[in-house]
Design a protein around this nucleic acid. Structure first.
Lengths: 196, 196
DNA sequence: AGATGAATTCAACGTGGTTGAATAGCCCCC
DNA sequence: GGGGGCTATTCAACCACGTTGAATTCATCT
């Protein structure tokens, strides 16, 4: 399957997919800084210039690889149910998403790269304000639903940041249940409580 | 003032300070990734190898430049006063610290580099668990003061992250007073309220 | 004065993102 | 059915970066 001469490799136009798969794996396992275009190219058995050709830049590769990796549907299931217990459901679902071996590593990769590349910040911004806050705001009864949704999202993000990225004690060793009990009511207050 | 020959430049042993100043300026203005050791050396009119000699690595340079840049004293002033309004005072002071042209840019540089270099994460961890949570916990009356302090710190960090680093709407355009009114009670609940 | 050690520079290595030109295969149109 | 053009693909090169090792200069101690 190896190509020795120059020019287009015949037969397989799924090369782009292979590059994307390698990129996702590398970004997730090693983060943005430690991921190299040359390494991704090597893993996909391809020339580095081809990665550039397809995705323009390392930033573009990150965007293509991890946009759409935010677990929108996984969180949406928390929306259905009694609004008075929405805070606890959302908090628990959020924690599960961060701990799931499926979705967790991808979120870590995105959030952890926010400062390294504009793509990560944009993905996160789109997620918080479009994919999470908008549907959440629609299921809220009170005034200023967008503001409520963003305040809740910020609270959840701070919790996850301290727990999973910084791993600061004693937050890192609290159980999921303890966190739901501690943080859930604050989220609930943002969603349906009195904001002043 | 330029040196043309090799060897130690006579007279000025404050070169280390000059390098540190250039490093702080660059990390603060451009972040970790965009700061280059060669650029810092150029700004300090020094050879890149000298930066390595003094600080060991880019990571070491970051640590030396920004450790101690967290505004511990600025936040400590919020501790004195009535405990029942501590949440609001802390929230307001925290926002002011992020917005001050003195302390704000440095915090942004540190928090924004958490994923890029271990030094930033360690600085932040030391700050949250040592310099902020410990004195905060000491002035709390209830049970589990460390846990309360960290929960409050995580809430504040999430707020700042969404507002100043992501700049997601409508959080970015809320006023300080609105945020104090909205977030302060949640912080207060962590500090003195019922955690379940 | 000589030795010691720190400050400082120079040149080099390896790696990384990115670029420009070149080639090879495919499809469309006349 | 043959030529033009588009796309996939590679190669070689550029420049900047972090880091290293040896060399040189200076100050200080003995």
């Amino acid at each position: 399957m190896e190509s020795s001469k120059t020019g287009r490799r015949p037969g397989t136009p799924q090369t782009k997919e292979a590059i994307l798969d390698a990129a996702i794996a590398s970004f997730v396992e090693s983060g943005y800084a430690a991921t190299t275009i040359r390494g991704v190219a090597r893993a996909a058995d391809v020339d580095p210039a081809l990665v550039m050709h397809f995705f323009g830049s390392k930033d573009g590769l990150f965007d293509a690889a991890l946009r759409g990796a935010m677990p929108v549907r996984e969180l949406a299931v928390a929306l259905s149910g009694d609004v008075s217990s929405l805070g606890a459901r959302l908090t628990r679902r959020y924690l599960e998403v961060w701990e799931s071996p499926e979705t967790g590593p991808r979120i870590r990769a995105i959030v952890g790269s926010i400062a390294s590349t504009p793509a990560a910040a944009q993905i996160m911004r789109d997620f918080m304000s479009g994919e999470l806050a908008t549907p959440l705001a629609k299921s809220l009864p009170g005034d200023q639903p967008e503001r409520r949704a963003i305040l809740a999202a910020a609270q959840l993000m701070g919790m996850a940041f301290a727990r999973y990225l910084l791993a600061v004690e004693p937050m890192a060793s609290m159980t999921t249940d303890e966190l739901v009990i501690s943080v859930g009511p604050s989220v609930q207050r943002y969603l349906t409580g009195d904001l002043g």
